[in-house]
Simulated scan of single mutants.
Amino acid sequence: MKAVRLHQYGQSPLVEEVAEPTVSGPWDVIVDVGAAGLCRTDLHIIEGQWDPIQHPSLPYILGHENAGWVREVGSAVHNVKVGDTVIMHPLTSCGLCPACRVGQDSHCENATFPGINVNGGMAGQLLTNARAVVKLDDGLEPRDVAALADAGLTAYHAVRKAAGDLFPGTHAVVIGAGGLGHIGIQALAAITSATITVVDRSEEALELARQLGAHHTVLSFNDDQVEQQVLDITGGGAHVVFDFVGEKSAELLAPKLLRNRGSHYVIGYGGAVNLPTIDIISREINVIGNLVGTYNDLVELMTLTSQGRVTLHTAVYPLDAVNDAIADLEAGRLVGRGILVP
């Protein structure tokens, strides 16, 4: 089968022929990939940022946002059957460790992470397991939902965690209306009553944000001016700031947009949060990390998607054009998510 494989950090991945995966365990599921999302994490993987954390053996297949159709199942699999349309939770979890017992799949002690530390889904087929597959409702196509497996799940997970604090009269600020942020905006509109303000450097992205439910938008061209505009809009600062960028000074701006006792949800990454401890204490602000999401988060997100309350804005590329898609993502030419179709 054809696959996108990374051979060396700092170099472009190659499209080449590799062997198809095979079922070797009772809980294995092989999926014919219908679509694989391209994520900024893929850029960080290519740069080598994930090597100290995950130690993948090179070369391996990229792609951690995947959807398709079940091709083959192991002997113990009963939740899906051959031919079902499915989206995959990014991690293949064990179900037995303490984290799995409380539903925290992303923190499974025995998980593999296709596309991060084992072969992923930028290929004709993907090997996953029964605990990772979510059967899709009729009418949902893999290319329309694939990137929701990570970008959507991560954004929804953060909003879901904050939802209890975003009752009527509260303010949520979203930094970054791109691949993750545009889904976070929709999740905020769908499950909270907060007033939503979106900050981005792109007027095109802000126009999309307004279409998706943002009440206010702020064009980011100077941090001091952005800070003043947001403080004016929110009447003194946001109750929750969702930073979907996490680098290029966004991580430094985010805490300045909070009111006292507010929460800074860190979703994007690459930079470093730098807060004086006296500020954290005197203002009683929170910095909250967010890693992917739970299986149930993904089920809930697919429900919202089937109801038409969350939609994914995409640019579709054939698998052979993966490096064109990467170049577009790096250059900021993508609005929404890049999708690779084998």
Score class of each variant (00 low, 15 high):
residue 7 H to L: 05
residue 10 G to K: 00
residue 10 G to A: 04
residue 11 Q to L: 04
residue 16 E to D: 10
residue 16 E to F: 05
residue 27 W to F: 12
residue 30 I to G: 07
residue 32 D to I: 10
residue 33 V to S: 02
residue 35 A to E: 05
residue 49 Q to F: 05
residue 52 P to W: 11
residue 52 P to S: 08
residue 65 E to V: 04
residue 70 V to R: 02
residue 72 E to F: 10
residue 75 S to G: 14
residue 75 S to R: 14
residue 76 A to T: 09
residue 78 H to R: 14
residue 79 N to K: 12
residue 82 V to G: 00
residue 84 D to K: 09
residue 90 P to Q: 13
residue 92 T to R: 14
residue 98 P to R: 07
residue 101 R to N: 11
residue 106 S to F: 10
residue 110 N to Q: 12
residue 113 F to A: 15
residue 118 V to L: 05
residue 122 M to L: 08
residue 122 M to F: 13
residue 126 L to W: 12
residue 127 L to P: 00
residue 128 T to P: 04
residue 131 R to T: 05
residue 133 V to R: 06
residue 137 D to L: 06
residue 137 D to R: 11
residue 139 G to F: 00
residue 141 E to V: 11
residue 149 A to R: 00
residue 153 L to N: 04
residue 158 A to Y: 04
residue 160 R to C: 10
residue 161 K to R: 14
residue 165 D to P: 00
residue 167 F to C: 09
residue 174 V to D: 02
residue 179 G to A: 03
residue 180 L to M: 06
residue 189 A to C: 05
residue 193 S to A: 15
residue 195 T to C: 06
residue 197 T to E: 04
residue 200 D to C: 03
residue 202 S to I: 10
residue 206 L to K: 01
residue 211 Q to Y: 04
residue 216 H to K: 10
residue 222 N to C: 07
residue 224 D to Q: 14
residue 231 L to G: 06
residue 235 G to N: 15
residue 236 G to Q: 13
residue 237 G to R: 06
residue 243 D to H: 02
residue 259 R to N: 13
residue 260 N to M: 11
residue 262 G to Y: 09
residue 263 S to V: 11
residue 263 S to L: 03
residue 264 H to S: 08
residue 269 Y to K: 02
residue 278 I to R: 08
residue 279 D to W: 04
residue 281 I to Y: 09
residue 297 D to R: 07
residue 298 L to F: 10
residue 299 V to H: 07
residue 300 E to R: 15
residue 305 T to N: 02
residue 306 S to R: 11
residue 310 V to H: 03
residue 317 Y to D: 09
residue 319 L to G: 13
residue 324 D to K: 15
residue 327 A to G: 12
residue 337 R to E: 10
residue 340 L to K: 00
